[in-house]
Amino acid sequence: MNCTNFRNSIFSWSENDFSAFSAAELEAHSKECADCSFLLEEFRKTMAIIEQEKRIEPNPFAETRLLQKLENYKEAENWWDFPVPKPFLRPIYLGLGITAAILLGVVMGFEEGGIYLNLTSKITNIESVRSELNVPDIMGEDIIEFSNQ
């Protein structure tokens, strides 16, 4: 047995699997080679860390924290109670939404137009009042005078 064979069998050996080499062969080499013997010892100690890690217990408050987190999640879910439409209904909902937006735009457009018409009617009223009171249109006269010159 050489060092390479020994190092390739360390894991199997630590699990009591001697299918590749016999225990006697491995032991004989570990007595001859200090480095391999050290590696075997370290490997066993490192594998024992797995056993230590298995014994680790979570924080006793982890359960309470987890329950609180799920409670918060549930509350956040309840905040949005509007039913989500099924996938095949989504295009219909989308179409309805777009139609509603267009209609709203048209109505608002008409209202804006109404305001404009009101303003123009107010302007014609001012014109008629001015002509009744015989108020001169100074700007208009200036322009006429300027054009006559």
Partner: peptide, 22 residues
């Protein structure tokens, strides 16, 4: 914890796992 080797991260992951289950 066996994957991430940190208890705090493992607890955070457990919260994510439970929300995923819900």
């Amino acid at each position: 914890y066996y994957f991430v080797h940190d208890m705090q991260d493992a607890e955070d992951l457990a919260q994510d796992v439970c929300i995923e289950i819900l």
